[in-house]
Amino acid sequence: MKILVCITHVPDTTSKINFKDNNTKFDPTGVQFIIGPYDDYALARAIEIKEATPGTTVTVLNVGLADTEPTIRKALAIGADDAIRVNADPADSFFVATQIAEHAKTANYDLILMGRESIDYNSGVVHSIVGEMLGIPSVSPVMKLDIEGTKAKLAREIEGGKESLEVNLPFVAGCQEPIAEWKIPNMRGIMSARTKPLKVVEAKAVDSGYKIQKFELPPPKGAVKMIPADNVAQLVTLLKTEAKVL
């Protein structure tokens, strides 16, 4: 079986977000980058399938500039066999999805996994666009994925519950917990990742019809009003008359 896992290179979840150049660019100063947490679930499930199914290969793909290579190496250390970096700034969902589809259309993957969304732009659409471009089904957010021959059984989270689904391979899945437990690379993985193949390819030009004009931070939160524990009635009054939310 051939599995492709698409990963993002995103600010650590504890990062403070700032912009520069008159709010037109993300400011990476002091920010630590990680594999997107949802992508990390996808990767972990891919490695589990590989371990359970002899002959399986896992390729990771990232659309990013050279600074994403440590993140890609981490995915190799976790257990992927080889990697592809599409050398471009991941400008928007349509652009990224086009690059993934472009690579996948001739590579015959049985399974294309990624996170349900990236934690920078949160659009949550790349898996659906890739599926549509390749003409294969896409399902997200997937919280359970079991391969049964040429089919897969999936659980997809919906508002207030979940659906159990069945789909033939190949397909695209946007993953989330509890599909697998995050994997931490061990020393052997880190050593072997250094020599695993990482191929750099150039991007295909795309007009996405999507242009970021500027970024904005939310207004700072006002000071919290503390209410004594023995006076919950005061809280109710404030919620009614001041915050007007009751």
Binding site: K16, I17, N122, G209, Y210, I212, F215, E216, L217, P218
Partner: peptide, 20 residues
């Protein structure tokens, strides 16, 4: 035609022009 969308999991917003 620009829309404002929530990004960085609610920590920021982006104004995006939809040109098609």
């Amino acid at each position: 035609f620009a829309v404002k969308k929530s990004i960085y999991t609610g920590k920021a917003f982006a104004w995006v022009e939809l040109t098609n």
